[in-house]
Design a binder for these strands. Sequence first.
RNA 1: GGGUCGGUUGUGGAGCGGUCAAACACUGGAGACUGUAAAUCUCCCGGCUUUAUGCCUUCACAGGUUCGAAUCCUGUCCGGCCCA
Length: 402
Amino acid sequence: MTENLENKSEEKYFEITKKVRGSRARTGVIHTAHGDVLTPQFLPIGTKGTIKTVTSEEIKFWGATMVLANTYHLWQRPGDALIYKAGGLHKFMNWKGPIFTDSGGFQVFSLAKMRKVLEAGVLFQFDMDGKQEILSPEKSIDIQANLGSDICLILDDFPGFPFEHKRSKESIELTKRWAERAVAEHKRIIDDGDPVNPGQKLWGIVQGASFEDLRKQSAENMVELGFQGFAIGGVAVGEPHEEMMKAVSYAIPHLPEEAPKHLLGVGTPYDIVQAVGQGCDTFDCVIPTREARHGRLYISARDENGKECYETIDVRLAKYAEDFTPVDPTCNCYACVNHTRAYLNHLMKSGENLGERLATMHNLRFYLNLMDKIRTAVQYDYFDDMLRDFRDITPPKGQNTE
RNA sequence: GGGUCGGUUGUGGAGCGGUCAAACACUGGAGACUGUAAAUCUCCCGGCUUUAUGCCUUCACAGGUUCGAAUCCUGUCCGGCCCA
């Protein structure tokens, strides 16, 4: 590991390996202390230190290179001190590749009913025992340092949809003040502390909803603080696809081209391809894993012109009970190679865990395959076609796809 | 043969004189899900329709008592258990 770090000390943190003419899409490599990440890349979500239902070995085998874990949840249980004792999150969960940690900022949003945003940080009230705790920008960094992730995020604040300029402006200002504190704390730990992962990098987060002036201001705020990577947040909170793309397009031009950019919480396969076209490099989203557990599977498809697209099926539906074909005949995942839709339908209806496992492995395989296709398309100069044609062609509800 | 407890919507199982198409659970059907309070949540599940504070039909079957019965009484049929 040390050797690698020394060998790479000359390399840039992020290298762009190919750019698409006439678009911001590119391929690249992020060098982390736990290996390289080819971009564009999708990060499976392992909030509590596990990609639900599957093992680290399995997702590695299916092609994942970096996973996302969550500060808030691991702070609660089992506690960052325990994970520190275990030697860091990589060892604790036996994931040898890079780990990206969210700061807990999303919980500021999603747990709105049980928290209060203060200048000092976020006051959370836990329903378990009623105790209250403040997650401050510094505390979030401390926890992430104990986890030893390769990329950690500043604690941020953002409102939900519908977007309001006034509220969004307040959130980028608060996020900026929190960011300054986070940067100081991260520097203190890396310089003077005993971090689990000395190579950990702190990324900033751009907020500002879909307001052009706010995205620009927020991006500039973050750039001033000297981050090596940036996340775009505050999207995928219920807004239409177009609003999301506006938010992204307003932020990207004000961030350094040579910096890696992560789009937080996005998204559908369509969202991802479009966002790559806007210059986003990495993504994370619960869709493939959560929807798999709920029976929705992503499968490749062709549109009326034979262009590559995708659709979704809900294997729990009665119409799949006697469908003895693979989930996706073109997919090489374990589920598709070995099992049928009818079997998955049965497992799901029976509440058997294997159904969720097979579905999860399939959807992750679909997403990771998609990222591979995107990188290939960029490399071989046909990403424009993909950007134009790739979309969800799932038939309207109630119609039979057979 | 005697006694006893029961027979309610696919199943289990509430209700025990009116506010009952009938709780609740399961099963079944459909929908949702975007930095995971999510192996979760929502809706439908006797029939009909203009899907509704709507109409019809209903609580093993047949009678009866009551202004009014799934609820009380009598008989019949069918189950469980106990005694012969």
